[in-house]
Design a protein around this nucleic acid. Structure first.
Lengths: 119, 119
DNA sequence: CAGATAATTCACCCTTGCGTTATATAACAA
DNA sequence: TTGTTATATAACGCAAGGGTGAATTATCTG
């Protein structure tokens, strides 16, 4: 079901926070590091490492801009997650539908057996 | 942004597989353990541990049925993930919209400065 | 060139997470 | 009761992940 190193990488609150920040637009690494640094009490190198993981998972892109790195969200990454969830949901709903028809069938059967001079 | 121990727990391929299996309907622990055991080469206790994590994250429910445990997917868990993704996407799209109007504004300004006897 | 700034990488520590085997608990079957 | 099946828990080892400070690379500034 899809390319899921995406969800592997998103199984970390710091990285999810970075994604949330990037949802608002492209940001330099330093700003991201400060944000999550403040929020989670981690150092700048730690944040940089998280950025690397996100990069390698194809969740973000980075672009050089002078002496800084601009990070941006890759839309497709979010699509991956959405697709996975939608598939799970679809299966689940289909199961529920099947259950309903099953129940309906059961009701019909029960009704019939009552109406029919069987018992 | 929401209750996200959900995504923490889903940052593991075995657990995602279990969720996928449960999407098709309620299943006893043993069957799940066999499935992911075969697929990932892990033991029954290992699978049981994964089920525990999913349970504690509120992703699955378990119900006793004689000597077995029936596991089922909690729909709301999938909603959590979907909501998170949708929020990120919404922010992102909104940013794109803003960018577009910005570009439009820029074009207008450029056009005007050409038309206007300014330079 | 000599700083200063931005970011990454390195070397290392330490905790957490996942795996294993062995054991416990509980329900069913004989 | 004894045995078997289903599942969970315990105890423990090991690898991975995430954190840190120090060092490296690269760009900008005076």
């Amino acid at each position: 079901m899809g390319r899921m190193q995406t969800m592997d990488a998103l199984g970390d609150p710091v990285r999810r926070r970075i994604v949330e920040l990037l949802a608002a637009g492209t940001r330099p690494a330093g700003e991201l590091a400060r944000s999550v640094g403040d929020a989670y009490g981690i150092s700048q190198p730690a944040a940089s490492r998280h950025l690397r993981v996100l990069r390698e998972a194809g969740i973000v892109d980075s672009e050089i801009d002078g002496q800084r790195r601009l990070y941006s969200l890759r839309r497709e990454a979010m699509d991956d997650v959405a697709t996975w969830v939608e598939n799970v949901r679809a299966f689940w709903d289909q199961r529920l539908d099947a259950l309903e028809t099953e129940i309906a069938r059961g009701n019909r059967a029960r009704r019939d057996s009552r109406t029919t001079p069987g018992a």
